[in-house]
Amino acid sequence: MKNIVLDVQDLSVHYRINKKVIRAVEDVSFKVEEGDFVGIVGESGSGKSTLAHTIIRLLPTNAMVVSGRIELLGYDVLSLGEEDMRKIRWKEFSMVFQKSLNALSPVHKVGNQLADAMKAHNPNLTEEEIIDRLKQLLRMVNLPERVLKAYPHQLSGGMMQRIMIALALLNHPKFIIFDEATTALDVVTQGQIIEEIKSLVKSLSLTGLVISHDLGVVSELCDEIVVMYAGRLVEHGTTEQILQQPLHPYTQGLVRSLPDFAQEKKKLSGIPGNLPDLSQPVHQCVFAPRCPIATEECFKTVPSTEEIDGRRVACLKVGARI
């Protein structure tokens, strides 16, 4: 039995916007074992980024954690004080953000910004030690040393994303979250960075989460996949299970709406309808209005997450194929 690194239990996070309550994450539970990478997949508005930001406690002020518990590397993340949290954030766990250009200051050199983050957690290090570590990091992410003296706007998107990965690895974290880390990049650059992340994860024996809307990216990087829809976990299984034999109708629809080279030219099948209004409390299956196999029952009860063949699905009609 491997150690559990991240344990999320019954987590609900709401936002308060204009007197309305937006239920961004509802009753989500899952575990990540040491050495594993779990992909969180969902479309925009599914709550995947809120989930990630809750785990490292970077939520905006209008967000409230309504219920739940998060245990990360032995820390009870949600009950830690802000000061204690700051000490371990970026040292024990870190995150690679999507918009790298927005994540760094445009008026400071990349090298200085990396060094600052380093000093904040290791005040005793000398200049030389810091520079040595930065050079070592750049080699790890395949960047030339000259980028330390560059400003963010002088670097290409791929280089910036590598800087963000270096920044996340700065203090030897054990747990790392990639939040849409390759989304804004070109296909070839994205492919290269995915390959680099794969080898880094292996050589540093990292554990983590990959947040993405792209099933292709997640299937390259992860051992397990959590599928989210409208703030709820709808299915959780190994990458192979989710992609080869999805059980939840939403996952099935998602997998079938991917175009593939091998297929003949034919119609793509999508999922009709739109995301439900997250400000209304739901007393039914959230996916029922868009679900092709929903029956009366689905509009009356909230399906619980059941365990079937080592995977978890929240659907009353499990097994029934569309």
Binding site: N142, S156, G158, M159, V187, V188, Q190, G191, Q192, I194, E195, D214, L215, G216, V217, S219, E220, L243, V255, L258, D260, F261, A262
Partner: peptide
Amino acid sequence: YSPSIFKKREKINVKKL
């Protein structure tokens, strides 16, 4: 390099930058 869930392809290496 096109990520696909259907078929894993052999990646062709290109010069880095």
